[in-house]
């Protein structure tokens, strides 16, 4: 037996082994995908649902994952202050006045060196006055601010500040120009339409962020970031404030209900794609698929041919 394994059977055995391993690993995402996957168990579908499928059916309703990620007041403390405006499931809050004082201290320590003590900007960094708490919340809660080197596009990082601290900073900046700019949106996804979100996303977002939300390189060194970590609040903040090179979508352009639908589509579909077919291959389309077809497909078959045939 030993000689057999070592001998001319090494290749096919290794082959079957490799394929088996790939198969085992591949099962992992397919099981994981079964969470909030937006596939309905249609009444006509003849599925004798396997165990993994059951939660998918339950979570399929767009209401199921409502607003779980959207509340800025994570600890439940009354820090959101007063609502500025509210419509179609999005309420824009101005942070509570009690947060301004601690916010000023945090701001002075981490932001003032570039943006100025009064948030009026400097030669190194833009004026923050009038942008509103929502804009500040976006930059700080995605970890893009504080930024060490202002010459490159800020990248998403683990945030430096916790939720409360972020709101405090936002409260301080907002307090410089009360009532101006965008508030912090709290998004209630319970009434959101994934279908509307889908077509709005395709029309307004996919040209830069790609249709799978993977992001890509743009012109002149800029890039559109991946949307796979964005929360519903951050999505709406980005739509409203247009960070960096991103266009700026006002309510006359994308209404609140449309922004909510996009947020729902991003957080429920883009971030939990239905990869029914197996590995998503990074969502970068035919480039990845081509490499797999050539290296794995043709490559393995060439190895098989190498086994079958004569080699000298």
């Amino acid at each position: 037996m030993r000689t057999l394994i070592r001998g001319r059977f090494a290749l096919p055995v290794a082959l079957v082994g490799v394929v088996g391993l790939v198969g085992l690993v591949a099962f992992t995402p397919s099981a994981a995908q079964a969470g909030p996957a937006p596939v309905a168990t249609a009444p006509t579908a003849t599925t004798a649902a396997p165990t993994a499928k059951a939660p998918a059916g339950a979570a399929a309703h767009p209401t199921a994952t409502a607003a779980s990620t959207a509340s800025p007041a994570a600890a439940g403390t009354s820090v959101t202050g007063s609502p500025l405006t509210s419509s179609h499931g999005i309420t824009y809050y101005e942070p509570a006045g009690s947060l301004i004082a601690p916010g000023q201290a945090l701001y002075a320590a981490s932001c003032a060196s570039c943006h100025g003590v009064d948030a009026a900007g400097s030669a190194r960094a833009p004026n923050l006055q009038g942008l509103g708490a929502g804009t500040v919340d976006f930059w700080v809660s995605t970890g893009r601010m504080p930024l060490a080197n202002s010459s490159v596009q800020a990248t998403r990082k683990p945030p430096r500040f916790n939720r409360l601290q972020t709101l405090e900073i936002a409260a301080f900046v907002q307090s410089r120009t009360p009532g101006l700019g965008i508030g912090i949106p709290v998004v209630n996804l319970s009434q959101a339409s994934l279908a509307a979100g889908n077509s709005l996303f395709t029309l307004n977002c996919a040209a830069c962020h790609t249709i799978t939300g993977a992001g890509d390189e743009l012109a002149y060194g800029a890039y559109a970031p991946s949307l796979h970590l964005a929360t519903a609040t951050q999505v709406v903040e980005a739509i409203r404030s247009g960070p960096g090179n991103m266009p700026h979508f006002s309510e006359g352009n994308i209404t609140n209900s449309e922004a909510r639908d996009i947020a729902a589509y991003v957080t429920e579909v883009i971030q939990h794609p239905v990869d029914r077919g197996g590995f998503g291959l990074g969502g970068i389309g035919p480039v990845g698929e081509g490499f797999v077809a050539l290296l794995f497909g043709v490559g393995v078959l060439m190895l098989v041919a190498f086994w079958i045939g004569e080699r000298s």
Binding site: P12, L15, V16, V19, G20, G23, A26, F27, S30, T47, A48, P50, A52, K53, R276, G277, G278, V304, W307, I308
Partner: peptide, 29 residues
């Protein structure tokens, strides 16, 4: 019959063809 999971279908069919193919090739070779 029990599932329409693409992975199960692909895995079983693939392994089946792989086993049969390897056996026939070994026989021939």
């Amino acid at each position: 019959w029990v599932s329409d999971q693409n992975q199960w279908l692909g895995a079983t069919l693939g392994v089946g063809l792989l086993g049969l193919g390897a056996g026939v090739i070994a026989w021939g070779k």
